[in-house]
Amino acid sequence: MPEITKTRKAVIFCCENSSLAVNAVKDTRLLEGFEQKVLPCSGKLEVGLILKCLEREHPFILVLACPLDNCKYLKGNMRARKRVDLANNICEEIGIGGGRVRMDYVSSLDAHKVERILKEVREQIQGGLI
């Protein structure tokens, strides 16, 4: 994957619940280089928003949603999953590479899971993306 600018932060789109887990991350250095955008529900996310973030040179988009069957709005996380898949397909199709958008299901208590995800994303970005 060719280099893209390193000037911008990776974006975390999360719902209000999963943002609690992000905010509870103990090692806050893990959050450096990430910018959190909190939506009321992951179902509010749009493909257009993801692509706009990539356009604005945010190198990576991480979407955090509540575990399935745990969305406060019942279906939001399932809608988000479909949009993330579509966004990745588009990225693949337009030749900028598929794995730029990642989605994980985390509950408000899953700070340790968020830490693991952030580490993986960081490795992925540093291992070739930026």
């Binding site: 009321p40 529900c41 509010k44 988000a80």
Partner: peptide, 22 residues
């Protein structure tokens, strides 16, 4: 419930959740 799922679905981008404009 102010979740914004409809905003994410609307093909005409006709719906806005106040405070969460693009």
């Amino acid at each position: 419930q102010k979740c914004g799922i409809c905003v994410g679905e609307c093909p005409a981008k006709a719906i806005v959740l106040p405070g969460y404009e693009d």
